[in-house]
Design a protein around this nucleic acid. Structure first.
Lengths: 232, 232
DNA sequence: CTATTTTGGTGAACACTGTTCACTTTTTGA
DNA sequence: TCAAAAAGTGAACAGTGTTCACCAAAATAG
């Protein structure tokens, strides 16, 4: 069955991929508009003029299909952030850009981002995930996103703008929590920004504002302000 | 039909409330264990020895029932935070306690908290929510939670520990995002804390750590450290 | 106390859903 | 050319939320 060189694209394979992509494209369209509950295998099959059972020749289950949508979305998000994190600019601008692109690409596809963090692991799954190595973790998309943050923290510490007494992993987790929370808050509760007679600003402005506050929390503390540093 | 004083509890009403509470209790148990997808009207009816259609004499739909579960959970959460925010302690400890109790009560019932922020509003819903007043907003549970944060920020500013140039609303939103994100990160990705040869600490310790970092981001800036304050 | 109306509860049905499986048609590879 | 593998299908299964006609019991009115 396997050919001379493994990457050969027989016409059959090409056709198969085409159908697969058609399924994914329709699913993507559906899911982006109506979310997980709005994505139905039967409607999806109807959309691309196939029978529902045909889908199962390409995806083992609806869950598997959804997993692929979510994964490819998160990898796109990761690429975006990776790009701006590798740009050569002022450190503060670059760090802020990481936050803003993370949040804006997340909110641009609310269903995707929310679904990417939707599973509540059962105790058994939790026990399994407990013993997975750091290497295995940063091999995943989420792990790579986390690694970008860790590197960013370490760079900030090396540049003398971040507190060197902070554990980079903890700091990175703190940053991630702040970004994650803002993105989801904007997705699920998009009313807070200018609910009052204050000068209305755009969402993007607030994200940058939030990013600056988050970074201030990691900055080197003032000489003797109060006894308010996180104790190790 | 209406009696002399509106609060009269006829035996019928009492019986009805009893059944209603039984439904809610079973639903609560089911939902806490298996989440929204695991809560089935039919299984729920079977659990309390009623027919599925009986449920609809007490709740208009599954959505309505779920709404009640989520709302009552969030009000419990609000109560917890309200209590510790009203305690008379050192400001830093109190603020930190607000964050830690918020996050820990959220993670104690992961399905509830996640579901409380699960709806992605459609553009139409968004347009409706756009013109709702500040008064209407802080009448809701979420609004009250937000108000606690705003008050906390203003108190911190009055005490001179928070930067007075910060808009209390924006600062409160920033704090909320950070808490919300940490809670959801711990719910959906409970692997980050000590994934490495670093001294393993408990989740609670990290939440407090995070709280301190968040508060540091709102503290009065050092004299002339860098040009890293959020510009208004 | 009786008659009437309202309430609580049920079973069957409707319109969905994801998924499986026996089956046919098409395509591929030797 | 022929057998084997792949692609695709319709019907069925086991679920789901929800509705509705119907019935019995309780509350209410005369």
């Amino acid at each position: 069955m396997d050919s001379d060189y493994p990457l050969e694209q027989t016409p059959a394979r090409r056709r198969r991929n085409k159908v697969r992509e058609a399924i994914l494209a329709a699913a993507e369209r559906m899911f982006a508009k109506e979310g997980e509950s709005g994505l139905s295998i039967r409607r999806l099959a109807e959309e691309i003029d196939y029978s529902p059972s045909a889908i199962y020749k390409y995806f083992g289950s609806k869950e598997e299909l959804l997993e692929e949508l979510k994964d490819s979305f998160f990898e796109r998000l990761l690429d975006q952030v990776d790009r701006v994190s590798a740009a050569s600019r002022d450190f503060h601008d670059r760090a802020r850009a990481c936050v803003t692109t993370y949040v804006s690409t997340a909110t641009a596809r609310p269903h995707h981002y929310a679904a990417a963090f939707s599973s509540v692991p059962t105790p058994e799954e939790l026990a399994i995930r407990q013993h997975l190595s750091w290497e295995d973790f940063i091999a995943t998309s989420k792990g790579q996103a986390f690694k970008i943050l860790v590197d960013l923290v370490e760079e900030g510490q090396a540049l003398g703008v971040f507190d060197t007494t902070l554990d980079p992993l903890k700091a990175a987790k703190s940053i991630w929590a702040s970004c994650h929370g803002l993105a989801l808050l904007m997705i699920h509760m998009p009313i807070l920004p200018d609910v009052q007679p204050c000068p209305a600003q755009s969402d993007d402005d607030f994200v940058a504002y939030h990013a600056d506050i988050v970074m201030r929390g990691l900055a080197v503390p003032a000489e003797t302000p109060h006894k308010n540093g996180p104790q190790s």
